[in-house]
Design a protein around this nucleic acid. Structure first.
Lengths: 210, 210
DNA sequence: GTCTATATGACGATAGAC
DNA sequence: GTCTATCGTCATATAGAC
């Protein structure tokens, strides 16, 4: 006999076969779209299975539970976003410029991945993914969202490019303002997002530049 | 016979007896607390009934449906907030000062009514109240949240107190920044909210004052 | 490995007794 | 006017056939 395969349900620690990995990715991507369209609470296991052309139970074979699917969707979105933004920031010539890079790359990412947006709003604002059954508790030990931005501001202050202020509050304010502007662009297609982002950066520069 | 009372279920248009009004208010207030604690999706009809010491069906007698309860809770919170803020704004000596009044009264209201906050976050960010079953669709034709703020900014510009900028974007940005600062204060009790709000207003003044 | 069939429970809402 | 009892639906998850 080769390696003993007595497993009947996927456990988080098990190694994945190629087909399994492909299935998981397919289901995860479908789940992202469904959450974007119907919200977390409105995305049932049956709906995910239907979208994937699978049975209810087939989905539960690949993931152990519904929450596992949603967590996977969340992790993918957050991971992609973090990678995109951190790449843009590290490519900036100075700390001051990396702040602009943060804002612009974030907006660019959201425009490029519209389905991700609703899911992120769901998670970033609610904190968890809602709480029918048990809370997923996915973002427990992650550093706060404003951390990289605040760090860049602090470095820009050290460089002498920005005046002295509380970087935590300013980073939170800039992030929150971005959220607001973005939500507005979503609810009103006529709202000029690019112009709004320019105004936002101008607003920040006027208040923060040394 | 006096007035014919053949009604069996409460209809929105019917007049309320005194006891009915009291019951409705009691249930509404309990619902606000429950939504604050468990979120919309996590607040079942049974939980509301249990909190009120009533049966499942008794609640449905006073309100026609679960959504009616949640809408009542939402309406009360929004109504109280709007009244509090608009009073503060109209009491300000100038348009420029009414902006500060808006911010400070909003924060003050949230600090005074902590149970309201979670519900407002739930509604203001999601837009609706989630969508299990049918969406409540409570905030359909209401003017946007940033409207009074933007209007005050425009008046302050006319007064010559603020420089020229897009008041819509600035109002959205200020509102979003406030949301962010407030969410941070909720998740980290050690975060100094009053100081953050001062910083926020200072940030705005630096960028917007003429 | 994937599916059929099913267990089990929570939900919102209704009908009708009192 | 308020409650008991119940219905129908939909949810997640499991057991076991194939």
């Amino acid at each position: 006999m080769s390696t003993p395969q007595r497993r009947q349900r996927r456990k988080p620690g098990d190694a994945l076969t190629f087909t399994e990995a492909a299935r998981r990715e397919q289901i995860t991507n479908l789940a992202i779209g469904l959450i974007a369209e119907h919200g977390y609470a409105g995305t049932s296991l049956a709906r995910i299975a239907e979208a994937a052309g699978l049975s209810n139970a087939a989905v539960l074979y690949h993931f152990g539970s519904k929450n596992a699917v949603l967590e996977s969707a969340y992790a993918k979105v957050i991971g992609d976003l973090a990678e995109s933004v951190s790449t843009a920031m590290s490519g900036a010539p100075s700390a001051k410029d990396s702040i602009d890079a943060y804002v612009r790359s974030l907006v660019s990412f959201m425009v490029r991945n519209p389905t991700y947006v609703r899911l992120m709003i769901e998670v970033l604002t609610t904190g968890d993914l809602g709480e029918p059954g048990q809370p997923p508790e996915v973002g427990s030990n992650t550093p706060p969202r404003w951390a990289p931005l605040a760090e860049a501001m602090t470095r820009a202050q050290t460089d002498g490019d920005l005046r002295s202020f509380d970087t935590r509050t300013y980073a939170i304010a800039l992030g929150g303002a971005l959220d607001g502007v973005f939500a507005e662009a979503l609810s009103d297609p006529g709202y000029d997002l690019n112009r709004a982002v320019d105004d936002l950066l101008d607003l920040f520069h006027r208040a923060a530049l040394a």
